[in-house]
Design a protein around this nucleic acid. Structure first.
Lengths: 251, 251
DNA sequence: CGCGTAGTTGACGAGAGTCAACTATAGTGG
DNA sequence: CCACTATAGTTGACTCTCGTCAACTACGCG
């Protein structure tokens, strides 16, 4: 309500060429978890294998079911992984920020992409093909070990989600996702934490396995309690502490 | 009903020492997916790092939350991974057969065991510690790549399960699990496929995220339709085709 | 300032969880 | 080999969360 005369508080996505400049590329590559132990020299070499691409907001990077031929790294923006189901329901498997990888390759056990990747906002991504990546893998053994660790972590996260889906009511799942989004995309403001990424009711519903109506209802009660603020496509957490309390005490 | 005068049709679990004999150990190790490309000589060496242990039916191998110190391989029997929740509900994350691995190590991104492992039947498992495993990893680079592949596959499976939990009704989830169990533990009989592993209503419920009562109700309708037979702790699929039909057409 | 889309709200019903009582099974010991 | 008992499985009744359909409101971009 307070924002009725304002437009979205999110940073505008003004992407220019410089977002994929060599400097930015290298910086982001060095932040990719599975390249972390590498020397600058090796990173420079690896960088040469990658190609940059801009993706407009809402556009797909690849489609579910297509032959898995590339591994991607988010450089700027945000990418969401959507699992489309035959029943017409979408599931948001992950929302990635700069430095995270996605996509798939046969070496990594992916024959086909398991989901469709969309640019959640206009983004810049790097990609590498199978042959090049295998070369990188062989040249840098530590990368393989890091990959195992990351994948195991994601597996754990997925199993944790299974736990949530089978034992928690929708309200608690939404609270959990809000707090997680605050951690990952949150920007501290004087009046709370603004989630710095486009984030609609439908996104929230697809992350928690509910309908956008139910998500809307629950978000409204949270707003009425002063826990969050929200507008079209954005959410801010006003009182993370109270939200967490509620989340824990709920049982 | 037909079995009212019989005991369980499952093979009795008569474990003797020979189930963990060197021969059997080597054979199972060679079947572990991440050792598949290794030579006999290397396997022999790896074998020396493993220790064998017998676990009685229902006993735990390790507990959820404990420091992850070992990687295990099922040699004989079956092991189930149970995620205990604070709400008192259990989730059966996986049911493993000989040749599959479980447990965790810091190298693999596990600080603590994420679940408790129970012997679903009296079993024999091999274990290896952190130091030894890292040695094996360094001596055999292909193992790391295989591990990535296996973990990615498990991640995919977990995400597929998330999909099922959020979009499928219980009946369809149960059908899916029955067919999967038939594939994995099924033994062909003249009158159908017997699932050769102890398998209670509670297990089924914990796999599909429902209550044992609901699982029981659905299993009863399946029995009434002649799709399955079942008794205390065992299930046989009489008509896999019809079951699959039902599963697909259900929407 | 107006339109398209995101978000809201209400009403209703179906799926599935829970509680509780009951029955059947299969291993145990007489 | 049969009775005994603990435990697995079944069934009914009730409740409640949440999904669905539908109408409505209001942002915020152009």
């Amino acid at each position: 309500m307070k924002y009725s005369r304002r437009t979205t508080p999110l940073k505008q996505t003004e992407i220019q060429g410089h977002h994929c400049s060599v400097d930015v590329r290298l910086e982001k590559l060095s932040k990719v978890a599975f390249f972390r132990e590498l020397q600058q020299e090796q990173l420079d070499k690896i960088n040469e294998h990658f190609r940059a691409a801009h993706i407009q907001k809402g556009e797909p990077v690849y489609h579910q079911g297509e032959e898995a031929k590339q591994l991607f790294v988010v450089v700027h923006g945000a990418v969401k992984l959507i699992h489309h189901t035959t029943e017409g329901k979408d599931i948001l498997m992950d929302l990635l920020k700069p430095g995270e990888y996605f996509g798939g390759l046969p070496v990594l056990g992916d024959e086909n992409y398991a989901e469709t990747a969309y640019a959640q906002m206009t983004s810049c991504v790097l990609s590498i093909g199978a042959v090049d990546f295998e070369q990188v893998l062989h040249a840098n053994p530590s990368v393989a070990v890091n990959l195992i660790e990351i994948t195991t972590r994601r597996l754990k996260q997925a199993r944790h989600r299974i736990h949530q889906f089978t034992t928690w009511p929708v309200e608690k799942r939404i609270t959990s996702v809000l707090l997680m989004m605050g951690e990952k995309f949150g920007e501290d403001r004087k009046d709370g934490i603004l989630i710095q990424v486009p984030f609609s009711r439908k996104d929230l519903a697809d992350m928690t396995g509910t309908s956008s109506e139910t998500a809307s209802r629950i978000m409204r009660t949270f707003q009425d309690e002063g826990l969050i603020r929200s507008g079209r496509g954005w959410v801010a957490i006003s009182d993370a502490e109270k939200l967490k309390q509620r989340y824990i005490s709920d049982g």
